[in-house]
Design a protein around this nucleic acid. Structure first.
Lengths: 329, 329
DNA sequence: GCTGATATGCTCAAAATGAGCATAGGGGGA
DNA sequence: TCCCCCTATGCTCATTTTGAGCATATCAGC
């Protein structure tokens, strides 16, 4: 049987002060520099009955966090994901999980970091992110031009426009992974060079890489291994899911105001929402229920306190907080 | 590092004569009986650069099929999934994939089987499946009653109603996996007893199992290992995905009539759709484009032939064939 | 030229959505 | 104390999107 090692990665998410954050650990790269990585742990085949349980176990052991909502994301097994492999090590395969937590209790070795520090082009809450026009659009233009044939250039143009909403195409918040992968292919993230030099295994290793631009023209902070790709997978999945399953509530205290709820949804979706319509959606949609109590430290008129209304699952097949832009036509 | 073997399973789907089918192989169970299983193959860590490529390689080798659309589904690693494990073998982890194909070219060892032969409660095209009232609802009633406490019974009742659309709750086509898992927990599929006796590892192994009912009171054909669970995962994913991504076209010839398209969507969704509205959806939604040509062997007035319109990806963020019942409120 | 099919166009009411206007009711500072 | 700023909350209105059907078109076969 194949020689393979299996590990688990966790994207542990919390939203505080309207900032979506993920738990990271520091790691020393082969280059000697220190870089951010996702928490990682093994499956103990003897004792862990399921992959989920393995994840919960080592997250507890490493950080003291007791995970609640957990969801499997994706299994990554590309041979160039780990530099150690080309040096004769076994094939590393990792199963990535998404976990949503409320509290921000800090572990010793772990740090909370802003999710959008790594994927800054994804946050449109204060308008179109400047990094798109400053670095990404020009970088993609260059990538389009690098294609040898006219037809290939046209295909690249099309793909760039669709994934990043350029030249009149609407921005699609859910295409997070597609965007990261395009940046990787276009050599607009440092990971693309790193994988190439360390392992010779980058996606288009047979073609010459373009010259490496200065770091400030590359959007976002890099991470170890393929962890930024995992981050993108997680964000895309979560953005899709809040629309048809009431998962946001996993990130909120048991009781909350409607604006708190809205801010968390906005933080994940990366866009601002119309306040009155959002309220109509969650109230008329039966997603929440007033408690009668009030929260008075809002900076304005006191807000009613609400709780998640479980019965909604009985009434509606796909209860979520549907965002604008999902409309057809 | 943990001792683990990694394999890949494929759910290879085609739709012919309005029947969604999957590719299966025969396998001899430990009991000596023959049972259906999903095609399986290893990852060759030395040569397969990615998991996708490994899948494509062994599917080609085993069946001659050249896969087009492929999507990773889920990674299964429960310790009781493989009887060999409790006999001291290594931990088996498998990554399941979904593949959509057009042709029905048969391999030597492989057979096409109706997807709904294994999950008959999922096909509502000719009304509510009789197996629900005959076997499932009574079986779930018994499961509800088996709970020791009143509160637990109420929770089970609620869960049964929501997942199977009982007692006035609407049927949600997407909850395929939840339904299979409930049947498994409630001992309404033979796999539940098999896993228990073979490995002692069934979900609720500490509790006594109910007496095993006759086979015709257990819905659908069983499969080897946890393959029916994989099938349920695949169907649920596919049903969700056709709503917001134009994946149906992977199952159709390049040119097709609108009724053909509708029948394929219905086959996957397991429900009938309103014809005129479906046409309005795909035409006005820009998903398809007329070719000017006609198909005259329809049994009635000749139908226009259409092709998938790629440009829709440029125009709309989430182009799919949205089904009824996804509406809020 | 019927009849039985399916194809295709069009209407209409109900529901959902996107945008705003207007009023309510806190807290803090002049 | 009164005013202002701020958020909460209620409600309107035009537009779009659904869900359901009616009506007509056009083929094959008798």
């Amino acid at each position: 049987m194949p020689k393979v090692t299996l590990g688990l990665n966790a994207v542990i998410v919390a939203v505080t002060e309207e900032v979506p954050r993920i738990l990271t650990v520091r790691r020393t790269a082969p280059s000697g520099n220190s870089e951010d990585a996702l928490p990682f742990g093994p499956l103990e085949p003897e004792t862990d009955r399921t992959l989920d349980l393995a994840l919960r176990r080592w997250v507890r052991e490493q950080t003291g966090l007791e995970l609640g909502y957990v969801e499997q994301l994706y299994t990554f097994g590309d041979s160039h994901r780990d530099p150690a492999e080309t040096r004769g090590g076994p094939r590393a395969v990792s199963v990535a999980y998404l976990a949503l937590v409320r509290e921000v209790s800090v572990g010793r070795e772990a740090h909370w970091r802003g999710w959008y520090d790594f994927l800054p082009w994804e946050d449109w809450r204060s308008g179109r992110p400047e990094v798109i026009d400053r670095a990404i659009a020009p970088g993609l233009d260059a990538w389009v031009q690098r294609a040898p044939k006219r037809h290939a250039r046209q295909e690249r143009r099309e793909r760039a426009d669709i994934t990043f909403g350029l030249r009149g195409v609407a921005w699609d918040g859910d295409r997070v992974l597609e965007r990261y992968e395009l940046l990787y292919e276009a050599y607009l993230v440092p990971e693309a060079w790193r994988d190439r030099t360390e392992t010779g295994g980058a996606a288009e290793s047979r073609r010459p890489a373009p010259p490496e631009p200065p770091r400030d023209l590359l959007p976002g902070l890099p991470m170890a291994f393929d962890h930024r790709r995992i981050l993108a997978t997680a964000l895309g999945r979560l953005r899709g899911k809040i629309k048809y399953r009431p998962v946001v509530f996993e990130l909120l205290p048991p009781t909350f105001t409607l604006l708190q709820l809205q801010r968390v949804v906005e933080a994940l979706a990366g866009v601002r929402l119309h306040k009155q319509n959002f309220r109509r959606l969650v109230e008329h949609g039966g997603l929440v229920e007033g408690t009668g109590r009030q929260e008075s430290h809002t900076g304005g008129r006191p807000a009613g306190l609400f709780v998640f209304r479980r019965e909604v699952l009985r009434e509606r097949p796909a209860p979520g907080v549907g965002l604008p832009g999902v409309r057809r036509a």
